[in-house]
Design a protein around this nucleic acid. Structure first.
Lengths: 142, 142
DNA sequence: CTTTTGCCTATCATTTTAATAGGTTGTTGA
DNA sequence: TCAACAACCTATTAAAATGATAGGCAAAAG
């Protein structure tokens, strides 16, 4: 399951994209709109700043804003930044220690195939597709 | 990430499929071959029995065995049984309480699309594909 | 009737998750 | 200039999940 870190970060990004008029959006406003604790969001948003997704400015009139065009964000980089990895098993992460069973593991190829599929899915999905009014997905019903 | 419950269960299933000669396979043997604590496997295997994946027989000459043909197992049912769900968010699980944001949630359609993809992937993948000697995957190198 | 093996209950340490709390620094509009 | 605002920083926490370990009981076969 995707944790609140990833899910909330995504909602912050969408919120910022929907209020992307050049000004800075206070976290207080985002927290109220998204109905998420502002204090908890601070922790999440901190990592989004250091991860290069958004920028923050202190003081009156300050807040956060996107630092790129909306089309230049993939969902994959947002989730991967917040969740650490998209890999289904530790063996497939970047800094994985070499598994002694690697050569004989019957499941690794499947995990690898799955990982590629997941990676493609999220990196091909753009933030702009989730922003209200810019996609048919808005009226999608499950 | 898939937990040890799911990953170990899968390895037990593969081990049983590779020793599927009608006899019962003692957990001790599986634990040794797979290099997993037998005591920990007991917990996992218990759920595999109650979940209808395998059967166990006590006593000398006892052990576990598959209760269906190898082709009749999908990876999806094994992982779903052990992990509880394949859904990426709680909103998409079977007994999910109705989310108040459901109607306005911009991310739900994406999670739903992702869920469908994951579900299809694992339910179309059969246990027999992972069993040694029955698939080209064996020589697959990442 | 002893050996083997599954089965059951309990306990445990560690890590992760999802927050809360309070203080400090930086910025600006009045 | 200074008060209000907003980001930023550190610490703490409760609860749950994770990944086991331990010991004994029950059943079946040889």
């Amino acid at each position: 399951m995707i944790s609140t870190r990833g899910r909330y970060a995504l909602r912050v990004m969408i919120d910022l994209a929907e209020h992307n008029d050049g000004s800075h959006v206070p976290l207080k406003d985002i927290a109220e709109r998204q109905e998420i604790s502002k204090k908890y969001l601070e922790i999440i948003v901190k990592d989004m700043v250091s991860g290069g997704l958004i920028t923050g400015v202190s003081g009156k009139g300050g807040g956060y804003k996107l630092c790129r065009e909306v089309d230049d964000y993939s969902i994959g980089e947002i989730i991967e930044l917040m969740e650490g990895t998209l890999a289904p098993v530790a063996c497939l992460t970047d800094n994985a220690e070499v598994c002694p069973r690697q050569e004989i593991c019957s499941t690794l190829p499947m995990w690898s195939e799955f990982y590629n599929m997941v990676h493609d899915f999220f990196y091909n999905k753009k933030l702009s597709e989730l922003v209200s009014g810019t996609s048919d997905y808005v009226n999608y019903v499950i």
